[in-house]
């Protein structure tokens, strides 16, 4: 193609774009809802149903990390998106940076569908106002090889048991390691630790290092190491690892020890820069339909917040035993502590 032709093409294209955008409002374009979310949280069946119901057009942007969500939201003070899905411990930062707005639950009639465990999640309430609506949840459970454990281990203390030395793997995650240890030590508030508690957790985790064969890096990595053999116990990254291992022929069980376990909830929130807050509320209301919750559990293997039967069908019956993540007192301090543990040689 000759350059001049190319330039004419580009100019024509640009003009076309300008024209079309100029004429769009005149022809009463359908309302648009811009959703920033994780893969699997805005699937076609119910997005199509929502579009049919409201006449709005849903534009979905998928994200791969919390970093990305924050980058995209801060870039425009939330003006680029109307609705986002993010996990509970991020809400402190989101509200601090004024990237989201409170959710008026009186305009979300389906909030009555919420299961009891998700009606009062303190991590998403600021100044007495809810800023999000719980949608999907899971935990950081203990996964064990049934050959080694005919009965599920009762306590997290099994991760410090001489009998399983070198046959334990744990995920490489500062906050999850620290909160789970805090639960084992019986601390009331694992998200606001005192100096003394920090010191005790550090000693405990250093002690555990002698028993841990490796800190794995991700979902698949953990499954692959477990399936290679020589592993009895895993502080897991989430429920889906159990069926993944079953598929690889390892007969594993999953348990929430008596001290409880970390829970996470992905919630829908409305961006501070939402163009049409009413439409955003309608979307959130729609997400709380029981069929949507059922679909979430059946498809992703994570818990939903509206249909208890669908949760029970995939074994997620323990929402009340979980401690849902909150923003910790000082994330940098937790990262430093964890790095210190990983850097300290043992035996």
């Amino acid at each position: 193609m000759h350059r001049r032709d190319f330039m004419t093409g580009v100019t024509a294209g640009l003009a076309g774009l300008l024209l079309s955008s100029a004429t769009l409002p005149a022809t009463a374009a359908p309302k648009e809802l811009r959703v920033l979310t994780w893969e699997g949280y805005a699937d076609e069946p119910w997005v199509k149903a929502f579009e049919a119901k409201t006449g709005a057009k849903v534009k979905i942007t998928y994200t791969g990390s919390v970093d990305e969500i924050f980058a995209k939201m801060t870039a425009s003070k939330g003006e680029d998106f109307d609705v986002i899905a993010i996990e509970t411990s991020s809400y402190k930062r989101l509200t601090q940076e004024k990237l989201i707005q409170p959710v008026d639950l009186t305009k979300v009639p389906n909030a009555k569908n919420l299961l009891p465990a998700f009606r009062e999640v303190s991590a998403i309430v600021f100044d007495g106002k809810p800023y999000a609506v719980p949608f999907a949840w899971g935990s950081i459970p203990l996964i064990y090889d049934k050959k080694a454990f005919p009965q599920p281990p009762a306590s997290w203390s099994v991760l410090w048991d001489d009998k399983y030395k070198g046959r334990i793997i744990a995920m490489d995650d500062a906050n999850n390691a620290i909160v789970t240890t805090a639960l084992l030590l019986g601390y009331k508030d694992p998200f606001n630790l005192t100096d003394a508690q920090f010191a005790e957790i550090k000693a405990k985790l250093l002690d555990q290092k002698r028993y841990v064969s490796t800190y794995y890096a991700g979902f698949d990595d953990g499954v692959s190491i477990f399936a290679q053999g020589g592993v009895d116990l895993m502080m897991s990254m989430g429920e889906p690892q159990a069926p993944m291992l079953q598929k690889k022929g390892v007969d594993v069980g999953l348990t929430i020890p008596k001290e409880g376990a970390i829970g996470w909830i992905d919630c829908w929130a409305i961006s501070a820069g939402a163009r049409d807050p009413a439409l955003a509320l309608a979307f959130i209301d729609f997400m709380l339909e029981k069929q949507v919750g059922t679909y979430i559990s059946e498809k992703t293997g994570y818990g939903n917040t509206t249909n208890a039967d669908a949760n029970a069908a995939i074994g997620l019956t323990y929402a009340d035993k979980l401690v849902f993540l909150q923003a910790p007192e000082n994330f940098a301090r937790r990262i430093d502590l964890w790095n210190e543990i990983k850097a300290t040689p043992v035996e």
Partner: peptide, 19 residues
């Protein structure tokens, strides 16, 4: 394994949730 901590990973740990 538990001896596999390197500087690159220390850098990595400052991103993501750590922000």
């Amino acid at each position: 394994g538990n001896q596999g901590f390197t500087f690159g990973r220390a850098i990595w740990s400052q991103f993501g949730m750590a922000f």
